[in-house]
């Protein structure tokens, strides 16, 4: 189990989801990924992508214009 980060700030949806997907596909079950984003669309899209593909959202934080989403690979 290891922790990973991904910076997709400034990218517009669906790019943050694509990058998250591609990164998650390289990881193992139990790994975590913290994704830093700026497009508010991710608040919908990353959780939707996780639901569809069976991964878990551990937390979502909004701070100034930045959104941090933590995903657990399942």
């Amino acid at each position: 189990m290891s922790a990973h980060t991904l910076d997709v700030r400034r990218l517009l949806c669906p790019m943050p989801v694509i990058r998250t997907q591609n990164k998650v596909n390289e990881l193992q079950a139990g790994d975590t990924l913290v994704v830093s984003c700026t497009d508010p669309g991710v608040l919908n899209d990353i959780p939707a992508w996780c639901r569809i593909n069976g991964h878990k959202i551990l937390s979502t934080k909004e701070h100034d214009d930045e959104i941090i989403i933590e995903v657990e690979v399942c």
Binding site: V17, Q21, G41, N44, A48
Partner: peptide
């Protein structure tokens, strides 16, 4: 900004209960 924001491909996949692979 008050409009619902959703990615329609993800929405479709969720309605269908299938996996979706988004390819750049």
């Amino acid at each position: 900004q008050d409009k619902a924001k959703r990615n329609n491909a993800l929405w479709s996949a969720e309605q269908l209960g299938i996996k979706l692979h988004i390819v750049d």
